[in-house]
Computed example of a mutant assay.
Amino acid sequence: TENLPNRAPSNGYGMTETTALAIGNGGADYQAKPDSIGRPSPVVDARVVDPAGDELPPGEVGELCVRGPNVILGYWNKPEATAQTFINGWVHTGDMAKIDEEGFVYIVDRAKDMVIRGGENVYCAEVEAALFEHPAVDDVAVIGIPHEELGEEVGAVIRLSPGQSVTLEDLQAFLSDRLAKFKIPVHVWFRDAELPRNPGGKILKTHLRREILGN
């Protein structure tokens, strides 16, 4: 805002399947709730649902679904993918989100990135945000590590900032007053190379899991 005093920040959400911005947050709404992607566009409906497809009440986390005239009808020559993603007019986005009492939507994580540890849901984006607060962390990806009893444990792949050093124990102590104990990584892999990303800048966690765990 110092460099662009006559401009205001904004936030929004859209995907290929919605053909355009489906949810937006700007102006006074953004100033009040900058961590929200906003409210649906006038022609768009949004809701969050549980694994059974039932709509959840405000504040509860579930999969974000949207519908409207901007949503495509399906994928070309991919009937199975279409049937899985487009259900009763709603596109299931694969994003975990919550909607507050005023209709503002908050993205929590990607459904496929969520770690389920002993029945507890761990949202990787939350753990990554906490790790980014540590001055030694330059880049990080949180992933699920298979565990015989718990199902999964929380792991993190970290690229340190130049000249920095830190141990797993240091990070666990740092996170102890920021996260619930079950969300704190129990495995950490440090690497010098940049984390793998796709052309859109998203970390390729599948590649990281393959590097760490093998096939």
Rank of each mutant, 00 (worst) to 15 (best):
E80M: 15
I107Y: 09
H187P: 00
L208P: 01
D100I: 14
L4Y: 14
S165P: 00
E128S: 08
L168I: 04
I23C: 05
L175N: 09
D170P: 00
E152T: 07
R210D: 14
L160W: 06
E120R: 10
D29L: 13
T18Q: 01
P34Q: 06
D95A: 02
R117N: 11
A46F: 03
D192K: 10
C124F: 03
H134I: 10
G24D: 06
P9I: 14
I158C: 13
V48L: 06
A81T: 00
V71A: 03
Q31G: 11
G214E: 07
M96H: 11
P162A: 11
L160F: 02
Y75E: 03
S41E: 15
V91L: 01
A180S: 12
E102R: 13
D95V: 04
G68A: 09
L175P: 06
V122M: 03
V105R: 05
L168Q: 00
V108Y: 06
D95L: 08
G26N: 03
I37N: 15
G119F: 14
R159I: 02
N70L: 10
F132W: 07
D54R: 14
H187Y: 01
T82K: 10
R191A: 04
F104I: 01
V137K: 03
A193L: 05
Y13N: 05
G163V: 10
A46L: 10
V142C: 12
E211W: 10
G38T: 07
I23P: 14
E149I: 07
I143D: 05
F182C: 03
A8C: 04
T1W: 08
K33D: 08
T19P: 07
P5R: 02
A180D: 14
V71G: 07
R209H: 00
T19Y: 02
F182H: 14
G151V: 04
R191H: 01
A28F: 06
I145E: 03
D35H: 14
G89P: 09
L56C: 05
R39A: 15
N215A: 13
E133G: 12
R47Q: 15
M15V: 00
G89E: 09
G27V: 07
Q31R: 13
G201P: 11
Y106M: 09
K181A: 14
